[in-house]
Amino acid sequence: MNLLTLQFLSQILLLSIVFLLIMKKNFSAVSAYSLQSLVVVIILLNSFFETKDMWMLLVILVMLIVKVILAPVFFIRLIRKYALAFSVSTYLSTPITLIIITILVFIAHSQKLIPLTRIVPDHQVLLSLALSSLFLSLFLIVNRKGALSQIIGILSFENSIVVFAVFANLEQSAALQLGIVFDIFIWIMIASVFISMLYKHFGTLNVSSMKNLKD
């Protein structure tokens, strides 16, 4: 796969997160997450073709099953079960959200972060895009009030880290990656259970209603 294709895939990843930041419907959010996970799988597949490591293929297969198929299925079942068609609101309005997205993308591409984005000089544009995705995922977690959006934000953050690691040639052993995917699978299950419990207790997935728990 040439650089332009990889750049295109990275842009899809970034745009999916921008979409997650401004969308209103939960089904759309899950679809966007599924799409970005597929992009990550394709990027990893490219890595497999370069290394021909069969363990890597196994990781990619597991990732495909967990992130692209199972996780969205879990989320869709949750949405249907609790009739959560619309996501709860954001802290910031859409125009301000867009301004912050611009600032974060600018920072990720700025001269200041060159030591990070030039770890592999040929991949500077790719790494800048991955870094932008990382920042936007964090912003997604902060800005959304809904627990489901936050979980998707955390998963997007993880996807961004994987992509950054691949472009920076910081891939770990296949066994470790397999372990991470397994962790994520377990985490998705636990998060789903928690979402159910939270909904039953509070009647909403708005995390700001949970702040009284500290007392």
């Binding site: 802290y91 964090l138 912003f139 977690i141 902060v142 800005n143 959304r144 009030k145 936050q150 995390v207 700001s208 949970m210 702040k211 009284n212 728990l213 500290k214 007392d215």
Partner: peptide, 12 residues
């Protein structure tokens, strides 16, 4: 203040 978003924003 008990708001998880705020805690994550500190990390950010």
């Amino acid at each position: 203040n008990g708001n998880i978003d705020l805690y994550i924003s500190y990390i950010f």
